[in-house]
């Protein structure tokens, strides 16, 4: 690349990103969401240094169901494990599952949505039928169908890409049941974008359909995808929690949902052990709420017209 290109190219983009960040970070909801999120990301990044290795029934450090105290800030559970320790380790599992499921959902949803909207006609009809099928499929039913198959094929032990098979199933199930939402939004945006004159110009200057979809339509979809992606994460955390709560999680890699399930089964509610249920519950609420806040803030930043007049 010639000297001048190198010298001038990055400037415009940097400026655009800067002005976006200024607006985004000025948004109250975004600030609250980001603060919570960073807090939980730190927990998820270094659970061992913060609270020591994951406690099990064997290396549990306390008595059974001790209420919060100086020694156990969030009390202990029914086998004497420190709840703080479990919750911090749970952050890693829950967030990883939610984020990976979201990546699957965004990649599949965006590809299907762009293809359907851009090509239209029969391609659109069939892809949208497929989308509707997944749209109405309950994640729990899908999980029930897939789990035994995967466990049969892979065996209960071992891992798939570093995950215990049941967690892997949860990731895939959430990804498969949430992409339809993304695909619908992306399709409707693509339908209007492809009528824009710049797409005509791209065709006249010889760009192929793939180039038009990737270089012209996709960049204009990114705001929508980002804003809805944050909502997908919130939904994924919620679905993960309910699937685990219903017993599809893995006790050896406990997520917040699994912790809730264990506490529930041990009768924490009737025993009055509010900390045992409350700690993971509050985590789930806080994290999904912060993703919703971030998603809304992104949406407001990208669609200034929708912003409430102060």
């Amino acid at each position: 690349m010639s000297e001048s290109t190198v010298r001038y190219s990055p400037r415009g983009r940097t400026r655009a990103i800067k002005s976006f960040l200024c607006q985004f970070l000025g948004h109250g909801g975004a600030q609250a969401g980001l603060v919570c999120l960073v807090f939980f990301l730190v927990l998820a990044a270094a659970p061992n240094t913060l609270v020591g290795p994951l406690q099990t029934a064997i290396n549990a450090t306390g008595d059974f169901l001790v209420p919060p105290s100086g020694e156990h800030l969030l009390g202990t559970d029914e086998v004497g494990r420190d709840v703080l320790n479990l919750v911090v380790h749970g952050a890693r599992i829950s967030l990883t599952i939610a984020l990976l499921a979201t990546v699957i959902s965004l990649v599949v949803g965006t590809s299907v949505g762009i293809t359907a909207g851009y090509y239209g006609g029969r391609v659109d009809v069939w892809l949208m039928r497929l989308t509707d099928f997944f749209f109405v499929m309950p994640s729990f039913v899908l999980a029930l169908v897939i789990t035994p198959v995967v466990l049969e094929v892979m065996g209960r032990g071992g891992d798939i890409l570093g995950f215990r098979p049941s967690l892997f199933v949860i990731i895939v199930v959430i990804g498969m049941t949430s992409w339809a939402f993304v695909a619908r939004i992306v399709r409707s945006q693509t339908l209007s974008l492809k009528e824009r004159t710049f797409v005509d110009r791209a065709r006249v200057v010889g760009s192929s359909n793939i180039v038009i979809m990737v270089k012209h339509i996709l960049p204009n979809l990114l705001p929508q995808i980002a804003a809805n992606g944050a909502l997908v994460v919130a939904g994924a955390i919620y679905v993960e929690t309910s699937l685990s709560f219903l017993g599809l999680g893995d006790p050896l890699q406990p997520s917040w949902g699994t912790l809730l399930a264990l506490a529930q089964r041990a009768g924490a509610a009737s025993a009055g052990a509010w900390w045992d249920l409350g700690a993971p519950g509050v985590c789930v609420l806080t994290v999904s709420l912060s993703f919703v806040l971030i998603g809304n803030a992104l949406d407001d930043t990208f669609n200034p017209r929708r912003r409430v007049i102060p």
Partner: peptide, 21 residues
């Protein structure tokens, strides 16, 4: 204004035909 992709720089716009053709 409509004929230019709002997310492409001037360089991208003028380079596009040279690249795609």
């Amino acid at each position: 204004y409509q004929a230019l992709n709002p997310r492409h720089t001037v360089f991208d716009v003028v380079a596009e035909p040279l690249r795609s053709l």
